[in-house]
């Protein structure tokens, strides 16, 4: 990469099929590896992307995941047209969940997704309108 070149990755995340959740994250991880990024940065992107992807699958019937890889940072934008989040502060609390029991069979749904995404990103913004959908933007700086 040089100058203001950025690499744009885009994925349609399918809802409904819980067992396939994570395919987009896996693809992002492999691409970042090929680009030769610092493994610690790749790890942080992976966790943010994977938790976000799981959220889109279980709460919003899928959505669109975009990853912009620049020289200074990686920006993950997750957009869905799901039910929206009525109370974002509450949703950010560790342990708060509205996930169905079937989600717990996957090892998720314990109210740790958003806290994990915040923990592993340098900046996270959530915009949500009830009945319209949610957009989560996460920035991971490249040291």
């Amino acid at each position: 990469m040089s100058g203001d070149d950025k690499i744009h990755l885009s994925y349609q995340v399918e809802g409904g099929d819980l067992t396939r959740a994570g395919e987009a994250s896996s693809s992002v991880k492999q691409t970042l590896r090929k680009l030769g990024l610092d493994p610690a940065v790749i790890r942080r992107v992976s966790v943010c992307m994977y938790e976000g992807e799981i959220n889109m699958v279980i709460h919003a019937n899928g959505g669109l995941a975009m990853v912009d890889v620049g020289l200074d940072d990686i920006v993950i934008t997750l957009t869905d047209f799901g039910p929206g989040i009525p109370d974002i502060d509450k949703a950010m609390q560790a342990g708060y969940t509205t996930a169905a029991d079937s989600v717990r069979d996957l090892g998720f749904g314990a109210g740790m997704g958003l806290p994990n995404m915040k923990k592993y990103s340098d900046d996270m913004k959530i915009k949500s309108i009830v009945g319209m959908g949610t957009t989560v933007t996460m920035v991971i700086n490249i040291p």
Binding site: R20, A21, G22, S25, S26, R43, Y50, I54, G107, F108
Partner: peptide
Amino acid sequence: LTGLNSPQVIRTAEMMD
């Protein structure tokens, strides 16, 4: 080590190297 039997176990392990 896990007692969870789901494809997400493999995905998670992959994410964490």
